[in-house]
């Protein structure tokens, strides 16, 4: 693949907590490249560093050492290279949560358009984009419903719509199918694969769900903070 196709480039990233006897190495010199259209899974036992790596790529957690580039922009090289990390997340990264984390006081449509509102889109255009996304994800008929009245699958699709709203090229998912039954989980993964392809994005998902392993392009295994194979 061409260098321009690399959306996530993590080199020599390490993260430790504490010092001396209490030191815990969550990540040890991790190198990872994710290309346009790729859908990869981060696997490993609890405490292996999956979530830490996801947080580092999501610019939520500063590594102790290493370099991180997102969509061609260097964002970390021993220190954060940008002060507006939230804006960076808003523009480049979409998050899909295990428990969908929709804002309970907003309707499905508003949960999607709030991202565009934060990004400075005009309200009407934001609503249109939200409706289009919800239609695309086949939950358009539930646009005016609040999350409490959505089924698990509907809520997760709204959460995916929210993650995609501002057309991010990097989508990070934390156990995206944990709350879904087997059939619905397969559908969500098919949808994510299609989105990655359509939007020229990449998807990095933390998962334990063996039933969906075949839907990933690569399975990245972590153990004790190291990549053990891929």
């Amino acid at each position: 693949m061409a260098p321009g196709d690399i959306l996530v480039d993590v080199r020599g990233v390490a993260k430790h907590y504490g010092e001396g006897e209490t030191r815990v190495d969550a990540l040890r010199s991790v190198d990872l490249r994710v290309h346009v259209g790729e859908v990869i899974a981060l696997l490993g036992p609890s405490g292996s560093g999956k979530t830490t790596l996801l947080n580092v790529i999501g610019c939520i957690l500063a590594p102790t050492a290493g370099r991180v580039e997102l969509d061609g922009d260097a964002v970390f090289d021993g220190k954060w290279l940008r002060s507006d990390l939230r804006r960076l997340r808003l523009d480049k990264i979409g998050f899909i949560f295990q428990a969908h984390n929709l804002l309970p006081f907003l309707t499905a449509e508003e949960n999607v358009s709030v991202v565009l509102d934060l990004a400075g889109w005009p309200a009407e255009r934001g609503r249109e984009r939200a409706r289009d996304l919800l239609d695309y994800l086949e939950v358009g008929h539930r646009a005016k419903v609040k999350p409490a009245l959505l089924s698990g699958g509907e809520a997760q699709r709204v959460a995916i719509a929210r993650a995609l709203a501002n057309r991010p090229r990097i989508i990070l998912a934390d156990e995206p199918t944990a709350a879904l039954d087997s059939g619905r989980a397969q559908l969500v993964m098919d949808l994510l694969r299609k989105l990655a392809s359509d939007q020229k994005a990449c998807i990095i998902a933390v998962t334990h769900d063996e039933k969906i392993f075949d839907r990933f392009d690569r399975l990245i295994h972590l153990r004790d903070g190291r990549l053990v194979d891929s």
Binding site: G58, I60, R86, R87, R89, L90, D91, F95, F97, N101, L103, P104, V114, V115, L118, A119, R162
Partner: peptide, 16 residues
């Protein structure tokens, strides 16, 4: 707090 964490994660600025 959980909703605030979500807002921060999706990019909401402090003023929001």
């Amino acid at each position: 707090l959980k909703q605030i964490a979500t807002l921060k994660l999706i990019g909401a600025p402090d003023r929001t």
